[in-house]
Simulated assay, not measured.
Amino acid sequence: MSLFRNARFEISIAKPSGLPPPNGAEVAFAGRSNAGKSSAINTLANHTRLAFVSKTPGRTQLINFFRLQNGAVLVDLPGYGYAQVPEAVRRQWQHLLENYLTRRPNLIGLVLIMDSRHPLTERDRAMIGWFAPSGRPMHVLLTKSDKLSRNEAAATLAAVRRELAPLGSQVTVQLFSSLKKTGIEEVEQVVGAWLVPAQDPA
């Protein structure tokens, strides 16, 4: 059975005080607005409307929790870095993200979504630099790889891996396409490996 298949929506929260009690290992999905995060989640879950997909960047304003069949939780975080969101709203999102990513005790890893045509933006680098000190693993999905030629995709993958190499085995990077449904198995292998120690106390 696919790791993400049959995920079911559990709760949405708009402020840190609304976070549910920790219950099961959580894997967060984060990314710049319009990087393809919702499409990636829907593709992994084999569900067209699990996560809301919008042509308007910045529409995901809540933290959404989806329970997986193995008891773990996929956590869809608000997209970051979209300039047309009012400053007050952006500050609220930032507080929500910071609070969740730095204080959630059962968060075991971060899947960071980047558009393969525009990887490692200033906000992406800030997110990596901010999360890395936790020592928890990060997996970078370079989405929309179908928009690149084979050579361009390979060059982008190599360049991102090279820049993140100082973080060692804490960070892994792959190409992904929701349109072509490529890269699904690799995501499942990486995230599945995070869940094994989290769920096996032995």
Rank of each mutant, 00 (worst) to 15 (best):
117 R>D: 03
79 G>I: 04
193 A>I: 06
108 I>K: 01
57 P>Y: 09
96 L>G: 00
158 A>N: 09
116 S>I: 05
190 V>M: 05
79 G>S: 14
165 A>D: 12
130 W>F: 15
131 F>S: 00
202 A>S: 12
128 I>G: 09
105 P>D: 10
104 R>C: 05
102 T>L: 14
87 E>R: 13
120 L>D: 12
20 P>T: 10
174 Q>K: 10
3 L>M: 05
150 R>N: 07
126 A>I: 09
110 L>T: 02
8 R>K: 14
201 P>A: 13
184 I>Y: 02
174 Q>G: 07
88 A>Y: 12
115 D>C: 07
96 L>Y: 07
151 N>R: 13
40 A>D: 04
190 V>K: 06
37 K>H: 09
88 A>F: 15
187 V>I: 04
9 F>H: 05
97 L>Q: 04
112 L>V: 09
110 L>M: 11
119 P>T: 05
54 S>K: 09
44 L>M: 06
112 L>N: 05
21 P>H: 14
194 W>E: 03
27 V>F: 04
164 L>I: 14
190 V>G: 05
92 Q>N: 14
167 L>Y: 15
42 N>Q: 08
152 E>K: 07
202 A>E: 10
53 V>M: 11
111 V>Y: 00
77 L>T: 00
136 R>H: 07
76 D>K: 00
25 A>D: 04
81 G>F: 00
171 V>W: 02
20 P>R: 11
66 F>Q: 02
116 S>P: 06
177 S>A: 07
178 S>Q: 05
190 V>W: 01
105 P>Q: 11
190 V>T: 12
123 R>P: 08
169 S>T: 14
11 I>Q: 05
103 R>I: 08
71 G>L: 06
63 I>N: 00
9 F>V: 03
59 R>E: 10
95 H>P: 06
155 A>E: 14
66 F>L: 04
193 A>Q: 08
123 R>Y: 09
185 E>K: 05
171 V>A: 08
164 L>H: 06
174 Q>T: 10
120 L>W: 08
154 A>T: 09
53 V>Q: 07
182 T>P: 02
1 M>D: 13
61 Q>F: 12
150 R>E: 12
157 L>E: 12
30 A>G: 06
109 G>R: 01
55 K>S: 13
5 R>F: 11
64 N>Y: 01
171 V>T: 09
146 D>T: 04
25 A>L: 07
81 G>W: 00
106 N>T: 13
142 L>R: 01
68 L>Y: 02
147 K>R: 11
104 R>K: 08
192 G>S: 07
167 L>A: 15
174 Q>I: 06
93 W>H: 04
153 A>S: 10
75 V>Q: 00
169 S>M: 10
38 S>G: 06
28 A>I: 02
21 P>K: 15
167 L>H: 14
12 S>L: 11
129 G>V: 07
194 W>I: 02
188 E>T: 05
46 N>D: 11
197 P>D: 10
133 P>E: 12
161 R>A: 15
162 R>V: 10
173 V>E: 03
49 R>A: 14
